Each structure stands twice: as structure tokens, then as C-alpha cells.
Computed example of a mutant assay.
Amino acid sequence: MLQTKYYEDYDLGNQRETIGRTITETDIVLHAGQTGDFFPHHMDAEWCKTTEFKQRIAHGTLIFSIGVGMTATVINPAAFSYGYDRLRFIKPVLINDTIKVQVSIKDKHDDPKRPEFGRVVELVEVLNQKNETVFVCDHILLVEKREK
């Protein structure tokens, strides 16, 4: 879906939530192959039985990637991603956990380098099926101003 939304159209506190997505063993294996991260925490079921979680956990970078992807439902030609700050892996995500993402507008201010843009900061929170926060980050958007 294409929707033009200018800096002035973003309201502090505005929220949206995604539907759920179950994390599978296939997700973890594919991510390990793509990144080269074959640490036993993700790949060795027998070794993981000796850890506090008792089973394999998803890569934090996998949850970051899937969580951000789940929020990408609208194409806004007036905005683009400027990056991510304050990434934190709060709790492990296990095979067959289902995650959803809540996004809320946390901050907005003029861009110090580009007067025709503003910065919008989205708080991205990934929650598991128990409604526990498993991952958080700030997503920074550069957004065109309607009035330049």
C-alpha cells in the first residue's frame, strides 16, 4: 500500500500493532546460514539442554529483522529509514514462540542538517505470545516536511 505521510502528519503517541508470526526452527537455521552465526545457543539442541533456557533460542538479529519486517506494511514516498538506535534483546525467543510488534511515535523534531526534513522516532517493541517484551529499539525516520 502506498500512503504519503509528511512530518506534520505524525502525532506523538500514535500507535499501531502487527499481527502475530510464529518463529520456527527453519527461521533459525536459515538465519544461521545467512549470517554465519552457528553458535550452539541457536543450533545445538543437546548443548542447550544444559543452559537456563533448556532449548535453542532465536538469534537476536533474527528477531530484529523479522520484527522490523513485520512493521513494513505501508510504503511512504515522503519518508525513509535513517537507522536504528538503542537495540536491546530483553528476553529470549524460543522455537514456536509467536511474536507481534507494537510501534509508537516516541519523538519528533527538526533534522539539524536538512531543514526540509524532520526526524520521527518510533519505539519498536516486539512482544511474545505471553505479551512479554522480548526486543526493543528506536527506529529513526527522515520525513519530508509539507511546508519547506
Rank of each mutant, 00 (worst) to 15 (best):
V29K: 01
L123Y: 13
F39L: 12
A45T: 03
T4W: 02
R88V: 01
Y10Q: 07
M43G: 03
H42P: 08
K49R: 04
D85L: 03
L123A: 14
K113F: 12
V29I: 13
R146S: 12
N14R: 02
H59S: 10
N14C: 03
C137Y: 10
V103H: 05
F117C: 08
D138T: 11
T4G: 13
F117S: 09
T22V: 09
V126N: 08
T73W: 04
L62F: 07
Y7H: 10
G20T: 08
G83D: 04
P112F: 09
F38V: 06
H139V: 13
F80M: 13
A72Y: 08
Q129K: 06
L127S: 08
A78Q: 05
L123F: 12
N96L: 11
G67W: 06
V143P: 14
D27F: 06
E46G: 07
A78V: 03
I99R: 04
L2K: 14
V29A: 03
L127T: 07
I57E: 02
K106G: 07
L30A: 03
G20K: 07
P112G: 11
F80L: 15
I63Q: 03
Y84T: 01
K113V: 14
K108P: 15
V143C: 15
D11C: 12
I57F: 03
C48Y: 01
I19H: 00
D97L: 12
R86S: 05
